[in-house]
Computed example of a mutant assay.
Amino acid sequence: MAEMAVQSDIVDDAGPYDRAKALSAFKLGDVTFYWITRISAISVLLILGGIILSLIVGAFPAMKEFGFAFLWTQRWAPSADPPVLGALGPMYGTLVTSFIAMLIAIPVGLGIAIFLTELCPQWLRRPIGMAIELLAGIPSIIYGMWGFFVLGPFLANTFQPFMIKIFDGVPVLGAIFAGPPSYLSLFNAALILAIMVLPFITSISVDVFKTVPPVLKEAAYGVGCTTWEVVRSVVIPYTRVGVIGGVMLALGRALGETMAVTFIIGNSFRISSSIFAPGTTISAAIASEFAESDGLHQSGLILLGLLLFVLTFFVLAAARLMLMRLEKKAGN
């Protein structure tokens, strides 16, 4: 009994000191964790601000020389005297290729995601999923080489002549699908972009489709809905915020893709109504000319990069605003 009393006195004496030490250690760890995460978050803003500032400083000579006319000037002649630089051609190519790519990738990607989550046999899901992951992991330069040596000749020899013949003489469409066929064109680049962004749309759509509560789909099937009706009336409305987020992520990738597009777009600053004509994008123009540029030419290329940054920012901001409105509408 005396020994137990002595041990109890020791525990009582040590208890307050140990608790204070433990609380102090917890507080120190919490404060350290808080400042590490805060500095990490602030560093993102600092890096973003530094990128914007460096682009503005580098582009200032071109901004001072050409002003707002840089936006609607088509000619690109850095070796002329005086130099003439205009961003209209690269901006047109960037928007057209991204639009065509998303026009192809969105329905195909959503179709694959719906098949994998609603219709695909269990034994086939894993091989298709692995194939999609492999598409996402292929370097962009490989896509460019494949587009240049395989896809470009195939489109120029088979698909493009067929489309030119079909729409020849048709108002508007005849101009869009006008010839001659070309290995290097806006359409070829857009098709490569569609293949490249397809895994982003598919993977995110599959993940969000799996979040739909099974009871909702079972209830729809219970009242006699077909698979298409379940997807259209239950799955898509329930997951539309996530699907739009995946689409916008893919669009951001399409707007900024460089090497694959540089291989097969033709690098022409001339604007044509035909999607089978060569063109260029902002990122392709920078990649193909930056190494040999200097002075005002280099400043103009940096200004192109600043325009791409602003364009991407507005696209993603619009996407975020759309998602907020959809979330608010769903909450109401």
Rank of each mutant, 00 (worst) to 15 (best):
L55P: 00
I56Y: 03
I56S: 01
A59E: 01
A59R: 05
F60N: 06
L71A: 09
L71V: 13
L71G: 04
W72C: 05
W72S: 09
T73K: 02
Q74P: 01
Q74R: 09
W76H: 02
A77W: 09
P78Y: 09
S79R: 11
D81A: 12
V84L: 12
L85F: 01
G86Q: 05
L88R: 15
L88I: 09
G89R: 00
P90D: 05
M91T: 11
T97F: 06
S98C: 14
F99H: 07
A101S: 15
M102D: 09
I104K: 15
A105D: 05
V108E: 14
V108Q: 13
V108S: 14
G109S: 11
L110A: 07
G111W: 13
I112L: 15
I112F: 14
T117I: 05
T117A: 13
T117N: 13
L119F: 12
Q122T: 15
R125H: 04
P127F: 07
P127V: 09
G129L: 08
G129D: 13
A131D: 02
I132R: 00
E133T: 00
E133L: 05
A136H: 02
A136S: 10
G137N: 06
I138Y: 01
S140T: 14
I141D: 03
W146R: 01
G147F: 10
G147W: 07
G147S: 08
F148P: 02
L151H: 11
G152S: 14
F154Q: 12
F162V: 07
F162R: 08
K165C: 06
K165V: 09
I166E: 15
F167V: 02
F167L: 10
P171K: 03
V172M: 14
A175H: 11
I176Y: 09
F177V: 00
P180I: 02
P181Y: 06
P181V: 00
S182R: 12
S185I: 02
L186F: 01
F187W: 10
A189I: 04
I192Q: 07
L193W: 10
A194H: 05
A194F: 03
M196E: 06
L198V: 12
L198K: 15
F200A: 13
F200E: 12
